[in-house]
Design a protein around this nucleic acid. Sequence first.
DNA 1: TTGAAAGCGATACCAG
DNA 2: CTGGTATCGCTTTCAA
Lengths: 351, 351
Amino acid sequence: MKPTLQTVADQVGVSRSTVSNAYSRPDQLSPELREKIFDAARELGYSGPNPTARSLRRGRAGAIGVLFTTALSSAFTDPYAVQFLRGLAEIAEDNRTGLLLVPLRDDDDGALEAVRNAAVDGFVVYCVPGWYQAMEAAWARGLPVVNSDRSGALYVGIDEVAASRAAGEHLMRLGHRRVAIIADYISPDRGTGEVIIKAPEELGSYVSRERLTGYRDAFAAAGLDWSHVTTISAAGNSREHGAAAAAYALDRAPRPTAVVATTDLLALGVLDALATRELRPGRDVSVIGFDDIPDAAQAHMTTVRQPALDRGRIAGRLLLDPPDDPARRRIVLPTELVVRASTGPAPTGSV
Amino acid sequence: MKPTLQTVADQVGVSRSTVSNAYSRPDQLSPELREKIFDAARELGYSGPNPTARSLRRGRAGAIGVLFTTALSSAFTDPYAVQFLRGLAEIAEDNRTGLLLVPLRDDDDGALEAVRNAAVDGFVVYCVPGWYQAMEAAWARGLPVVNSDRSGALYVGIDEVAASRAAGEHLMRLGHRRVAIIADYISPDRGTGEVIIKAPEELGSYVSRERLTGYRDAFAAAGLDWSHVTTISAAGNSREHGAAAAAYALDRAPRPTAVVATTDLLALGVLDALATRELRPGRDVSVIGFDDIPDAAQAHMTTVRQPALDRGRIAGRLLLDPPDDPARRRIVLPTELVVRASTGPAPTGSV
DNA sequence: TTGAAAGCGATACCAG
DNA sequence: CTGGTATCGCTTTCAA
């Protein structure tokens, strides 16, 4: 039989409240008594108040639910994602709160069940889109949710369209007119290869949708029609998938003078593909990524910097104590185009 | 006021038990009544039984605690670690169980508090050593713990010493006698640079201790004394730290003919360092890693393969239903030396 | 099938 | 500073 508060109280000869106070409100009793209680607890093998019972009574679960798709590997392999999680974990720690990973597998029912069953004080949505059901379930719990697409919700993010538009403008300014774009989650079959995207706005994946839209706008402003831009689907967000997708852009004639990707990981893969073909980044082919992960700097890659760590931190703060002022519930962080050596003027005679 | 089971029961005009059954034991009532109850719930905005209350009553938290040090980034950046977590998550999912990340920061008290407060059914220890206090706290909870060093505990791992001894023997067989070893957590100041390790057995870090010991044994058997082996501390388990540490081995005369590392990530850094210096892996300098992460194969790197995914899966199973038979509570998985192009005969005239 | 009653283990208010 | 009392929201026999 596991010892409880009562067990200890009986042993010491005090009431439950006093034992509870010994653990939760040290100022409510004498140090001597407190020590005596702890001694008894140790002797009985009592390791402190039961967290579940405490949560029930206090009305606080003491954990943040992190919703992500079962592609756990990709979620944690992406340095951007890791930074986001770090920021979140930092705030969680400061608030004595844990992080409960809620894996969403492909089977709908199980996923919904998991969301409904999670003992948490709120959710951070951190997964590829298409999980509206899971997000709905999170909402239905009546708990705060950060980054569901729902209006009025808590949100922290960046102006994706403006950020990628800036990158597109940079490219246009350099004179590039034969451009390929690599993105994930833009093909129905999730495979690698060229796909026709009539209108980026209609894409299901939030990130790809917004970033492609930004590029489209920048190109349009420079007179480059979207239909002349090659869009290539990557099977996932990884360096390898980026390289594989890049092949569809590089091994064709005429070769694009610029290949941009919606994430740094993909763009690093493009650089790998260039290296394989002995093409020079920024000279033969310009490359732009997105995120500015550490490897991007090391690869001298032009990219859009977004504050991943801050995003995680702010997500945590929004969740743990949501501002009353609706205006402060939706936070848009600044981004910055970081120009490095992977972009340069379009090769002459290339148009 | 948030709706509860009672609210719904009152609305429908049945008892709490019936509503509870509607959610947890569908076979206990008529489908019509069940639907009626769900309708009422929806109308009232009741999203199902409160997870915390349910946990308290059922005596099951529905989550596994994962103990790891706050170097969250390194925990998730290491592909080996990610694989382990995937395996764990897989089993957790199958058992409708969540994963609660319990970050252990450097401040002791907060960490212990976090362990004591985690609403979980057991712990998986997944952190660098030196956290005996936290592990003790986990034990004190009276819950199952996988991979605490405690004897009699649940354990899943590999024979680290034998595995690295095999790698060392491979090196000896190839004739290498000038060897450098790179490892993390072997220097008191956690910096990068050469350190003198009199006896590997005395190292604090479990992994580094065991793996260095295995190498030491293999070298000794071939007549190479440990005092002639250069040991270099890496400031962390990453490619970059590996490359930085490798500099201490490569930029000296006479240069070692082989540089081995305790993890693939570090060893990949060594390969990077070789590339920078235009040295050929397996010809000028042999390199061996440990783990066999995907990048290792891609880099044609000799390494020790360990089943990361299985390790995670088995950890999960051990925790979720611990075998009665003590012998089945400690599981040692097989490893395999994978010889690739990064190792070759010691350059002639090198001795 | 359905419902009444008894906790699960702890906390908080409020007298004493 | 201490202790009684009333929950927190749900599950689970056991009768009806």
